[in-house]
Amino acid sequence: MANNLQEKILEVKNLKTYFHTDAGVVKAVDGVNFDLKRGETLGIVGETGSGKSITALTILGLIPIPPGKVESGEIIFEGQDLLKCKISNLKHFRGNRISMIFQDPMTSLNPVFNIGNQLIEAIQAHQNLSKKQSYDKALELLDMVGISDRKKRMKSYPHEFSGGMRQRAMIAMAIANSPSILIADEPTTALDVTIQAQILELIDGLKKKTNSSVILITHDLGVIAKYAERVMVMYAGKPVEFASVNDIFYRPLHPYNLGLIGSVSKLNEEKKERLKPIKGTPPSLIDLPKGCTFALRCKFAIKPCWDSFPPTIEEEQNHFVACFRAKEFLNGSLKRE
């Protein structure tokens, strides 16, 4: 369980990242607030277009500008606002103190260099080490991510690796400079089920070993249940519920979160229960409806939902929800069915 006394390592306040396209302004991230504590795993859940990946890319300063633009907000890491940081200083954070594991390792590894070269480059970019020292460090990293036959593997090229191995190599690069935050953006979506389990266990193990923090971005509620301590649920660019993992699953207060849980079939269920999907499809991020973005799909929507987006309120301790009807769920006057 997340301990309140733990120090906050990262704080994101009112972050807004918009994309200015021909068709209109895409509000990809629209007012995201969260904090990350040392040693915890924070899960960010959402569907395509919910803004979960753009949030991560904004933290790392990887948004293409234009069309993207960070409209407002603060990203406070080690006492500094990354958004006000000079580009030269940002390098000190990106890939060093904060690093990222991407969904598709094939596109994030350079196909014309061997793994060893890329690892050594990642090490030398931020550490003042000799060639020999970097080489030894690279071997050590491969060992940490569970790649055997290391000396041979250093000379291999990405295409000679299987998908799982490539993701391991990516992780080795991400942890090369012992970052304090590891952002994993759908790290296993492109992998087979049995390999997924290996990679997630690896990330979790490394986190515990190095006492770093992990932001785990995924659409898979099972992965969240297993690895996350606190969870932020995002919908159409906005966080709608933010709480401990148990509250998210056992005491959901936002109808979208409720709908997500109703949409997934559980392996362990003895009786086949009919899934309860959310109706409709996620809205286009251009011309979002006035009011709550979820109202159109929400079976609990009432009049105020159509007028304004509900404010985020701490309904219980450490349980933040942006819904006008959360109180009714909480005191039991509204059934979650």
Binding site: K279, G280, T281, S284, D287, L296, R297
Partner: peptide
Amino acid sequence: DESVELETELGKKY
């Protein structure tokens, strides 16, 4: 399906 109406609604947007 209960969502027919809604799909129509969303369809107009595109």
